[in-house]
Amino acid sequence: MVSSSLLKQFQRATQALLGLVTINVIFFIFAPTYRAISNFQTIFSQATVLGVMAVGTTVVLLSAGLDLSVGSILTFVAVSVGSMLNLQYPVWLIVFIALGIGAFWGTVNGLIIVITGVSPLIVTLGMMMILRGFSELLGAGKDMSSFPRAFRALGSGYFIPVLIMAAAYLVVAFMLGKTRLGFNAYAIGGNQEVARLSGIRVNKCKVIYYAIGGLMAGLAAVLLTARLNFANSTFGQGMEMNSIAAVVIGGTSMSGGIGGVGRTIIGVLIMTCLASGLSHMGVGSSWQRVSIGIVIILAVWIDTAQRKRTL
């Protein structure tokens, strides 16, 4: 059942798939080092961090929300994890706490948005600032590297990270495709007032979606710190943009109500291949940043063009 709904999303995301194939063909031709098998292993393991984060962002965007603070949530969780690992806690507990912290900040975002009625853009932008401050405070002057091997295993290679990401995708795909919570996300994103008048507890649902977004950012932080074997307070800056870009390129509408995680994974691969390919072609990180901005604008353009056609 889950797989069939996933398959449908794949079909609808053929355009994104086409984009993915196109850029790969281009890089295959023009960047010889890109072709190596080892490079694809790297791409996969890199894609897991963004991938996990983007799952959460998909849920938030589907319900017509926006969370710009996920990058900073990642930073904060990474720094927290870094400080905890030196305390010799067991790995499972650390992962659990990391997810909890991520979900906590997501919940805080959701609660503020729901209770105050301030636009998510401003709330999460403010939260971004707040969390950066907290991360600096927490991470200042601490050595956060050389983590225990058991923890590093979560992020090393590509098998375990890809497995974790796949699990995240399956859970969220099930949530969106088979549960009331997921159905409500589409309804709220499509027309909040109709959802409210249909007896859906819009506010409660929204808080949960932001919490999921935060939780996934926490999980992404675990994967990233485990892979790099260190953590600091500049981690994850700008990740929120990559995450939004991946989701929108995949074909989830920024205005909510249309999309799903099946498409997001294609978006994530496009983003990762693009970054890898550009660096293999010798394009510096600053121009990569420019290209991400342009890609987002293009994705938004495609999004609005498609919406015009279907509505």
């Binding site: 510096g284 990180s285 600053s286 940043r289 420019v290 290209s291 901005g293 987002i296 604008i297």
Partner: peptide
Amino acid sequence: FITSLAFISVFQGIALA
């Protein structure tokens, strides 16, 4: 707000370059 969000990356990237 979306296009300006995207342009943050563009402007910062160019400035970095």
